[in-house]
């Protein structure tokens, strides 16, 4: 990791505040830095502001205060900046059916890089590369709704990998997966050479994949520490409506 120290962090969120048009304040000055190559879990109960924060990372929402930088580039409303930010931040949304909207897997994976201007052989290579990374290469011509839920989620990951993002942001990646699909996805995510921010309240999944975790509650970062340390602090977890599953004891893997 020492070689990376000189580079700007993949994600640098500073003092981000956000109020919805109706006046409800969702974020009260959030600070979060994710160095390049790290895997970080963003934990928090429902309504903590996790999704709102995620929508700031690629400029879909504009903060009322504070800044977001991705690999040294600060998010702004400027057209070219926004396009580059959306290439750098790959968001995998919770419901793969929201993400996969085209008739075939390959077309959907091609959508992002095609928006970046790629065409022809270069585009096809990107698609193959991304599908291979999630082990879905042989399904490239199938329709998304013919795939299993776990396969659809893997394709959803591929659709943003194809844009070669600086940071991969996953919203509840383990939700609705059966145990085998959950493990397969974990193996794939662990093997990806990319910075990763994982939004979840699946604590064992965070422990399995991320060395560091951040707890967001009521629009504020309330804890930022090694995952095992956080998960061992029962009082902290209980205060923020987080619970380990029955019988789960956090330990170094």
């Amino acid at each position: 990791m020492i070689g990376y120290v000189q580079q700007p962090p993949s994600l640098d969120v500073r003092g981000v505040r956000y109020a919805y048009p109706d006046g409800h304040v969702a974020l009260h000055g959030v600070d979060l830095t994710v160095p390049r190559g790290d895997r970080v879990a963003l934990l928090g109960p429902n309504g903590a502001g996790k999704t709102t924060l995620v929508l700031h990372l690629n400029g879909i929402l504009t903060p009322t205060g504070g800044t977001v930088s991705v690999g040294g580039l600060t998010v702004s409303r400027e057209r070219d900046t926004l396009a580059e930010i959306r290439r750098r931040v790959g968001i995998v949304f919770q419901d793969p059916d929201d993400q996969l909207f085209l008739p075939t897997v390959a077309e959907d994976v091609a959508f992002g890089p095609a928006n970046l201007g790629l065409r022809g052989a270069e585009l096809a290579a990107r698609v193959d590369e991304a599908l291979a990374a999630v082990g879905m290469a042989e399904h490239r011509d199938r329709a998304p709704h013919h795939l299993s839920f776990g396969q659809r989620r893997r394709v959803a990951v591929a659709t943003v990998l194809a844009m070669r993002p600086e940071i991969l942001v996953l919203d509840e990646p383990s939700s609705n997966l059966d145990p085998a699909a959950r493990r397969e996805l974990a193996e794939i995510l662990r093997g990806l050479p990319v910075t990763l921010l994982m939004v979840t309240h699946d604590l064992p999944y965070a422990a399995e994949l991320c060395d560091r975790s951040v707890i967001l509650d009521a629009g504020r970062v309330v804890a930022d520490a090694p995952t095992l340390e956080l998960l061992s602090d029962e009082r902290l977890l209980a205060e923020h409506r987080l619970e380990l599953p029955y019988g789960f004891v956090p330990r170094p893997s």
Binding site: L55, N58, I60, A83, R86, D98, F101, F111, N115
Partner: peptide
């Protein structure tokens, strides 16, 4: 709306 957000996130203009 969610589909549109996911599209915008992948550079749809």
């Amino acid at each position: 709306e969610r589909v549109y957000l996911a599209m915008v996130s992948r550079g749809y203009t």
